[in-house]
Design a protein around this nucleic acid. Sequence first.
DNA 1: GTTAAAATCTATAAAAACGATAGGGTAATT
DNA 2: AATTACCCTATCGTTTTTATAGATTTTAAC
Lengths: 136, 136
Amino acid sequence: MLSKKTKYGLKALTYLASISSKEPVQIAEIAKHENISQKFLESILLTLRRNGFLGSKKGKGGGYYLIKEPKDIIMTSVIRVLEGPIAMVPCVSLNFYEKCDDCPDENECSVHKLMLQVRDSALEVYRNNTLADLIS
Amino acid sequence: MLSKKTKYGLKALTYLASISSKEPVQIAEIAKHENISQKFLESILLTLRRNGFLGSKKGKGGGYYLIKEPKDIIMTSVIRVLEGPIAMVPCVSLNFYEKCDDCPDENECSVHKLMLQVRDSALEVYRNNTLADLIS
DNA sequence: GTTAAAATCTATAAAAACGATAGGGTAATT
DNA sequence: AATTACCCTATCGTTTTTATAGATTTTAAC
């Protein structure tokens, strides 16, 4: 299951991209427009800022804005920041690899074999989609 | 993330398929061979039996055995029984569809658009893999 | 047949982990 | 002084995973 964190984060990014002006947008406005708990969204936008997707401005007229062009924001990176690993099992993860406790040899593991394919197919989708693709 | 339930279930099925004899195999043997908590595995094997993948025999010399040929056990059905929906969001699920609370129109939703592609790619992998494919 | 052992079946619950949300205060900008 | 992002913490609810305790069925030995 996709976490709401990721879902909300994607929606917020999409909203910011659709506005297309570089003016900061307040958290409250995004939350209201996308039907999201404002407090929750607050923390999500914060991690998106910390990871270089968004810029922010405090005080009156402040808010969040996209730093990069939508076409340069690739889904793999967004998903990894918000959701974590793309792989469904740590032992097939490129960026979050971890060995399984129960597996003596992962090359012999049937789950490994299957999930490798699933990861690759998901990866291809995410690589072929930028934020710009999600708007149109 | 893939639940351990699914992971263990797949491993158990694989083990049974690799043995290839129709003799019942005891839970304890499977659990030991695959490093799985026996009691947990017990409940997993039960749901696999209830869903037509396994047969069982009680008493001395009893255990679990495959009902169908490994090549006839397709991953989509196994995953749906053990893990639930293949889709990462209910609004793109074929077998477990549900509308999102926060979406006025899912055809306009960027998350929907993206997750539809992810679902399709995962589905293709699962459809192209049978239990027999996982052994070799 | 009776009994004992071997195994699956059932139900519950507890523990742990995680997800989602809310509250309240701080810091920066206008 | 007002407005807004920032930060920390606590809580609630759900799901996952495992553990506990026994009931039931079958086989096999005597």
